[in-house]
């Protein structure tokens, strides 16, 4: 029925705040290359640790005098910590949902897929695969666009296109693969890298090949699908 302490000295919290401000401002300052940022960060961090130890030391009495209250506070603090970690779990979950279930048309990395027996496939219908290429802001020119392919479920296929770098500096970019309709995304697997990275040296042309695989999971009544390749430059 009592609170933690009726007349506690309230000095520590304010100084903890000041130390935290030093850590925050100093840390960002040093990221921005400001001189003194690191010093401020370090000094803030050391004082923060000392102050927190001191505060924790003073709070020990609370566990003896009001254990229920102290443990309730501790449990709630742990809950907050768990929720912080939960944001990481959400991030993983999103990855799984998009890559393994094809949400948003994303495809999965896939290595060592056994190639199905070609003879049984002859009867199944071929799927027509078109490719849309977005160069985005990558400063290269397209020399040869990917072709339309007819692929049977269970088969490997390669998408390739050629680009030319008209500048002198090498250009590095990544190719992002997505599938429309998104329901077919789980049927497309990458045989190597899901998002391969390429470099085109100055004044050269390069052919980029994406080794992919169409699985049997392709929904029936899907005579054609579109693979989107979006290029993103890596600075």
């Amino acid at each position: 029925m009592k609170t933690a302490s009726s007349t506690p000295s309230g000095h520590i919290p304010f100084f903890v705040t000041l130390a935290l401000v030093a850590v925050a401002v100093g840390g960002i300052g040093s990221l921005h290359g400001q001189t003194g940022g690191m010093w401020l960060f370090g000094a803030g961090l050391i004082s923060l640790v000392c102050l927190c130890l001191c505060w924790a030391h003073q709070s020990r009495a609370l566990f003896a005098s009001h254990p229920r209250l102290a443990y309730a506070g501790l449990a709630l603090f742990l809950l907050a910590l768990v929720m912080f970690l939960f944001s990481g779990i959400l991030e993983r979950g999103y990855d799984v949902a998009t890559r393994n279930f094809g949400v948003n048309g994303k495809i999965d990395d896939h290595i060592n897929l056994p190639v199905a027996d070609q003879s049984t496939l002859a009867a199944s219908h071929p799927v027509s695969i078109q490719t849309v290429l977005h160069l985005g802001k990558v400063p290269i020119t397209l020399v040869k666009a990917p072709q339309i392919l007819n692929v049977r479920p269970g088969q490997n296929f390669d998408l390739s296109f050629s680009v030319k770098n008209r500048h002198t500096v090498p250009i590095k970019f990544r190719v992002l693969v997505s599938v429309v309709p998104a329901t077919s995304a789980t049927a497309i697997k990458a045989r190597q890298m899901r998002y391969p990275m390429s470099t085109v040296l100055g004044h050269t042309t390069r052919t980029i090949t994406l080794p992919l695989h169409l699985t049997q999971e392709i929904p029936k009544h899907t005579p054609s699908l579109i693979i989107g390749l979006a290029l993103f430059q890596i600075p």
């Binding site: 609170t3 933690a4 304010f14 506070g73």
Partner: peptide, 16 residues
């Protein structure tokens, strides 16, 4: 209640 359960924590949450 006479006050909040953790008065010093309370001070900290405001001054942040």
């Amino acid at each position: 209640a006479p006050d909040m359960a953790f008065p010093r924590l309370n001070n900290w949450s405001f001054w942040l």
